[in-house]
């Protein structure tokens, strides 16, 4: 078997907020095609870690390398153009645009790059972008809502649409911050199915999640974060059996 290709390498990252050591000595390697879950109790530093990866926060020390390129110091749009997309904990969407428009905008970012003065052709005449967006909505089961205002969608649908906005860019790495938080059991299962479907297309994913059902049905690898440190790392079975993890997070043997 070939040596797995590391897509994202978080090397020796520290992050301090004043006196708080939010991340200490984080070393993570995300391998191509894998779904890597990061779990941990509230305040463990999961979101901080994700924000360091995406360029929202600069680490106090250490580097993040994506596909041979150092991400630290890059702007969010540059990081996206390298092929990293992100789903937020609270959906970041274009609330006063239609669902279709919400999905077309990221498709334009993928096609036209960070800035292009595209003044002469009308958007409606660009069938390719529109068709692509409609196919994407079909994929997430939202085609029938394409003309609705995104702001009027249910919480679950907003998240699903945001996922579609990321997927249409066919990113090499998808970061998901609690993709099923606030969803009903039914919506959660739909989302799991959707994420499994993407996995079969070989997209690398990092998921932060509280819901163990989601984590254990999706993850190939799990890293457990507690008080800013990685206390365990491994396959779901290894992590499940690790006594340190049970103590810090799972709160006793797994049911």
């Amino acid at each position: 078997m070939a040596i797995p290709n590391v897509v994202l390498h978080v090397a020796d990252v520290h992050k301090r907020f004043g006196g708080l050591h939010a991340l200490a000595d984080i070393d993570l390697q995300i391998e191509e095609g894998q779904t890597h879950a990061i779990i941990g109790p509230n305040g463990a530093g999961k979101s901080t870690l994700l924000n360091v990866c995406i360029g929202k926060l600069a680490p106090t020390s250490g580097t993040v390398v994506f596909d041979g390129q150092v991400l630290t110091g890059k702007k969010p749009y540059e990081i996206n153009q390298l092929g990293i997309a992100r789903v937020f904990q609270t959906p970041e969407i274009f609330a006063d645009l239609s669902v279709l428009q919400n999905v077309m905008i990221p498709a334009l970012a993928k096609r036209d790059g960070a800035f292009k003065l595209n003044l002469l052709r009308s958007l409606e005449s660009q069938r390719d972008i529109r068709t692509e967006a409609e196919e994407m909505l079909e994929d997430v089961g939202m085609l029938n809502r394409r003309d609705m205002l995104a702001g009027s969608l249910s919480r679950g649908d907003k998240r699903r649409m945001e996922l579609a906005m990321c997927l249409i860019q066919r990113p090499r790495l998808l970061l998901l911050d609690e993709p099923t938080a606030g969803m009903s059991r039914h919506d959660t299962n739909t989302t799991i199915e959707l994420l499994k479907k993407i996995k079969s297309r070989g997209m690398t994913k990092v998921i932060i999640e509280h819901d163990m059902h989601v984590v254990f049905s999706l993850a190939d690898k799990i890293s457990v974060l507690a008080q800013g440190r990685i206390i365990a790392d491994g396959t779901p079975d290894e992590v499940r059996g690790n006594p340190k993890v049970q103590e810090a997070y799972l709160g006793g043997p797994q049911q």
Partner: peptide
């Protein structure tokens, strides 16, 4: 969202 979508 525009920034995280890759637009400058």
């Amino acid at each position: 969202r525009m920034n995280y979508t890759g637009f400058n």
